[in-house]
């Protein structure tokens, strides 16, 4: 069990997909304008990650080595389609806000990376915990980035005003603000890593 917990927790801190592995930056940059979008993206990607990791760990024995990537993509695309249809049915506003980035989870490097680097070599239970950890790490990173961007760029958190007003810096709602925030956070986490080492 302790071993499984380690598989889970490595995705959150030691191998955080966004801040340490620097994977999946495209959706991170694009949708982190508000906390709602960030959480929506994080949860959607986590769901796909869990589904694809489990299925790929199950069928890894019968996937021919040479066409493994197309096989992974088919599995991932299935789960992305499920996610998108669910989102359209139950949360159309979120679906509109995330736009093209929901279908683009198919080519999210985190999902494909975990399938290739982990699920294709490990058993189902461990792959499940790996997916949970990576998904949680991605969601937490998105929470942090989108929280900073929503607070500084619009002066709100989860769409609610905070009881005091200031002139929000609209640059943080723009793509350049996303690059600024992610760059500074990457630098900060690298600094922590180096100090620990």
């Amino acid at each position: 069990m302790g071993n499984l917990l380690k598989e889970f927790s490595k995705g959150i801190i030691k191998e955080n997909p966004t801040f340490i592995l620097a994977l999946g930056l495209c959706p991170t940059l694009a949708v982190s304008t508000s906390l709602i979008n960030g959480v929506g993206m994080g949860v959607a990607a986590t769901f796909v990650l869990i589904g694809s990791n489990v299925i790929i760990a199950l069928i890894k024995g019968i996937i021919p080595e040479r066409i493994r990537i197309p096989c992974y993509i088919v599995v991932i695309a299935t789960f992305v389609t499920i996610t998108e249809l669910l989102m359209k049915a139950y949360s159309p506003a979120l679906n509109r806000a995330l736009g093209i980035y929901v279908p683009l989870i198919v080519v999210n490097c985190i999902v494909l990376g975990r399938a290739e680097a982990y699920a294709s070599k490990e058993n189902v239970i461990r792959s499940l915990f790996d997916a949970l950890g990576m998904g949680a790490g991605f969601t937490l990173a998105l929470l942090l980035i989108s929280g900073i961007r929503e607070f500084l760029g619009s002066g709100t958190l989860f769409g609610h005003s905070l009881g005091f007003t200031f002139d929000p810096a609209s640059v943080f709602s723009m793509p350049s603000g996303a690059l600024l925030v992610i760059g500074l956070l990457l630098g900060f986490f690298n600094y922590l890593k180096q100090r620990k080492a």
Partner: peptide, 9 residues
């Protein structure tokens, strides 16, 4: 940075 953040000022 300022012009992208506070264009009105």
């Amino acid at each position: 940075f300022l012009i992208a953040s506070w264009p009105k000022y």
